[in-house]
Simulated scan of single mutants.
Amino acid sequence: MHLCYIDDSGDSKHGVTLTAIIIHEDHWSGVLAAWLVGRRNIHSAFGVGKKQELHANHLYKGRKEYCDTPAQQAKFGQSPRDATGRMMLAALAKHPGFTVVTVGTSDRSKSKAYARFVAWLEDWAAKESTHLMLFYDGQQGLDYPDSNPDEARQADLWETAIRDAKPYREAHRGLDIDTRLIVEDVIMQDSRYSQLIQAADLIAYGAYHLHRQEHPEIWGTGDVTVSAAIVAYKKLSNHWVDGSDKGIIWLD
């Protein structure tokens, strides 16, 4: 059995990329421990809170406060932000027990792109003689950390989570139950509460910007690529899935 943590990146005009960290069940704790080493490193170096959500778009574009104290935050400019991404993925890369893959498509609908990704993962699982359980970044019915929602808010959060996950559940339920290698429905994991979804987010962002840089015929030239995210992503080169273009597979 492999556990698969997924996040998306891309733009609203040209397509979607979906990135997965695929971890054998025997290596799950070790991979998480490697990521947490990175968390300790950036806390020691910059004061980035150990429980602070790492979100690539915010991190690299100078948004959101990350540090424990105002003094540390004042020093947390672009250079330490870029270093944070590199340090996190360098720490993760030291563990051998996972594979990274990004699948891209010109489908602008995330749910359609996800269904195609599920089909690709089924083929991968067949080659590896394994099964997969999928975790995808999304609402799971929880409010912000340390909040105390009333009953009405809790009900609304839960209904939103169920509704938003529907097209992704359908991609799983469309598989042949007698032969499918992806078990259960997709499990939505809010990145605020999942370290490995945050890892998938950082990886997805770097993979997308690398592909955007190398394929302007697909993505256009209107937006600037984030070179620091690409540098961080390349720390994982030994983990890129076999048969890919730098960890990326374009389906169209």
Score class of each variant (00 low, 15 high):
198 Q>N: 00
168 Y>I: 02
153 R>I: 13
88 M>N: 05
140 Q>D: 14
146 D>M: 10
152 A>P: 00
144 Y>A: 15
83 A>K: 13
151 E>L: 13
91 A>T: 01
206 G>Y: 00
210 L>N: 02
125 A>D: 04
162 I>N: 08
206 G>N: 02
86 R>C: 11
107 D>M: 07
106 S>Y: 04
93 A>T: 01
121 L>T: 11
160 T>R: 09
150 D>G: 14
194 S>G: 02
177 I>T: 10
118 V>D: 03
173 R>I: 05
189 Q>C: 10
185 D>E: 07
217 E>W: 05
88 M>K: 05
135 F>D: 04
185 D>L: 03
96 P>M: 15
170 E>A: 15
140 Q>R: 13
101 V>H: 08
117 F>S: 04
115 A>P: 02
98 F>C: 09
105 T>I: 00
189 Q>T: 04
130 T>C: 12
136 Y>M: 11
126 A>E: 11
182 I>D: 06
119 A>T: 12
97 G>S: 14
197 I>W: 01
87 M>R: 14
146 D>S: 12
157 L>P: 08
125 A>R: 11
82 D>M: 07
191 S>P: 04
87 M>Y: 12
191 S>F: 05
159 E>M: 13
143 D>H: 13
96 P>V: 14
125 A>Q: 06
77 G>R: 10
199 A>Y: 03
185 D>H: 00
198 Q>F: 00
153 R>Y: 11
78 Q>F: 15
151 E>Q: 12
171 A>Q: 04
146 D>G: 07
107 D>I: 01
148 N>D: 12
203 I>H: 12
104 G>F: 00
202 L>E: 04
104 G>V: 00
88 M>C: 06
172 H>R: 07
200 A>F: 02
213 Q>N: 07
183 V>P: 00
146 D>F: 12
178 D>I: 03
131 H>M: 07
206 G>C: 01
101 V>M: 09
98 F>L: 10
134 L>K: 05
179 T>P: 03
119 A>E: 13
196 L>Q: 01
176 D>Y: 09
188 M>V: 01
151 E>N: 11
143 D>T: 08
106 S>P: 04
166 K>S: 15
84 T>C: 13
97 G>D: 08
142 L>D: 04
187 I>G: 03
186 V>D: 06
79 S>N: 09
116 R>S: 13
136 Y>F: 15
187 I>T: 08
188 M>R: 00
137 D>W: 04
94 K>V: 01
99 T>Q: 14
146 D>A: 15
153 R>S: 10
104 G>M: 02
205 Y>C: 00
197 I>H: 01
180 R>G: 08
128 E>L: 13
195 Q>K: 02
180 R>S: 09
179 T>C: 07
162 I>Y: 12
145 P>F: 15
141 G>Q: 08
96 P>A: 15
178 D>P: 02
93 A>K: 00
125 A>W: 02
152 A>V: 06
186 V>E: 04
79 S>E: 10
188 M>T: 02
184 E>Q: 06
88 M>S: 04
143 D>S: 14
192 R>M: 10
159 E>G: 14
137 D>L: 08
